[in-house]
Design a protein around this nucleic acid. Structure first.
Lengths: 131, 131
DNA sequence: ATAATTGCAAATTTTTTGCAGGTTC
DNA sequence: GAACCTGCAAAAAATTTGCAATTAT
């Protein structure tokens, strides 16, 4: 909890109970969409409104606290901002797992005439449990 | 034009003028969102409705004619279904360029305990013109 | 004390649906 | 001719906004 307060303040945001509970929900789930955050935080703070979540998702993205994970055919999920990584997404159970992008992979992604700044890599397939 | 008719029929869809013009719009743009398709096709077919575009985007995805490209902070774009490739996305002008995923890259993406089926790779940075 | 944030309700935007008439094969 | 597709208008879902009351620093 203290962690989220520190995280918010370090990024110039006031530490409200609404924000810390949204962050806790995202952190706990790993990757989660807005409706599921709402269901989650309402358990503890029944008056926390959906509008507040929308507003804070925007402001926390702007302040580099969280990151959007856009997905095909469903609403975007959000994750805490972390070091660069890629996503292993299970076609069967939908679970999203973070994995390091190896230096070997990075070396192969140097492209001529393109000044690379960042990357988004999603790998789809079957996770250990589902295969 | 004939190409789009063939493409649709090959994928069990009736070749209507609405569908061929949507495909032409997507093909011409490379990557384009629903509103821009709408603006585009209305020039030729002013009565073509947004509802028809929504319905066809869904059915053409289901029938493997087009593919969604989900993006952070904006509406998804759509492209014609093509061979596996990655996207170079310019942070400055927004242009999306298709590029081959090299076999060297693929080799580095073999992960233990994950049965890879497909991948989505977006690289962000500056294109030749914008750097 | 000040400036920012919240929750509510209303407004707006986006997407989906139902159905009568038209089109494709 | 059968099945499917379209356009319209209406419905539903998702997101944003304005503002008075509250809260963080």
């Amino acid at each position: 909890m203290t962690d989220y307060i520190t995280l918010l303040k370090a990024n110039d945001l006031k530490a409200t109970i609404q924000r810390t509970s949204i962050l806790q929900s995202i952190d706990h789930a790993g990757h989660i969409n807005i409706d599921d955050i709402y269901d989650d935080v309402k358990k503890q703070y029944p008056t926390l409104s959906l509008a507040t979540i929308y507003k804070n998702i925007i402001v926390m993205q702007e302040n580099n606290v969280i990151v959007e994970v856009p997905l095909n055919g469903e609403k975007s999920k959000y994750e805490l901002k972390k070091d660069e990584h890629m996503h292993l997404i299970c076609d069967s159970c939908g679970f999203i797992m973070d994995t390091e992008i190896t230096s070997q992979t990075k070396e192969t992604l140097v492209i001529e005439n393109f000044q690379l700044k960042s990357s988004q890599i999603n790998l789809f397939g079957l996770c250990k449990k589902c295969q």
